[in-house]
Nucleic acid binder design. Sequence first.
DNA 1: CGAACGACCTGTTCGC
DNA 2: TGCGAACAGGTCGTTC
Length: 259
Amino acid sequence: MPELPEVETLCMQLGEVIFGRVIRNIEIIDPKLQPVSEAEGRYVSAVSRRGKFLHIFLDNDRTVVMHLRMTGRLLWQDRHQDMPRHARFLIAFEEGRIVCIDPRRFATLTMEGAELGTALIHDPLQECPAHLLEEIGRNRKLPVKSFLMDQRIIAGIGNIYACEILYEASVAPWRKACSVSLREWERVEAATKRILEKAVACRGTSISDWRDLFGRKGEYQHELKVYGRGGRPCLRCRRVILRERLGGRGTCYCPHCQK
DNA sequence: CGAACGACCTGTTCGC
DNA sequence: TGCGAACAGGTCGTTC
């Protein structure tokens, strides 16, 4: 499930634990993943997030890049503990190790140069003003929900938070991006900031198996207003929340509140 | 070019 | 109870 708030949570926690530490080695467990080199003996000079990607910068101008996709998790183990089920790779330090756990094996791990992509991608926690959304969306006919989830435009919003944002902004998910007014984009921007910041403060949404770096559940699942509430009454108007497929993914919305 | 869909994987849930 | 089908949070490549 990792979307922006979950990856941001890991990013902050990783920074606390591994900044300045020396990597002993990176061990690949899942043969589907390519081995990475040039990490041994290097120390961590920074940890950052870009959309849903995690970057661990090393002192040799190399960068460990991870993407957790659907079911990936990272777990910090600071003393000898059993290898978890579905462990896919680990990054070992003197003080402990990061284990990547991923039942569906979609997560990725690569070693990149220091010059990571410079493409113009907007981070919803940074700069993502309504007028820019309106400008980009003006000639896009795809549904506004798909627009919000397009990582080439805004990086970090996935299915759960897209549903939540559009509900809070009172915009129907099927609306074409080009039909959304500036006024409505302003509501989308405000909802995005509020929801994602709160979700980060809650350390993410633990619907099924999401856990933070220390194995703790997040708390934002208690704040969800529409996601997972199909068939139940809308918290605003009490009419029934619908759940339908949009672009292949389950989409919960209130047909009365979201225009 | 944009949009829809299948593929990538495994575990869980649902219906018969 | 048992079994197969459907479905799950994300991205990418192909096709129409």
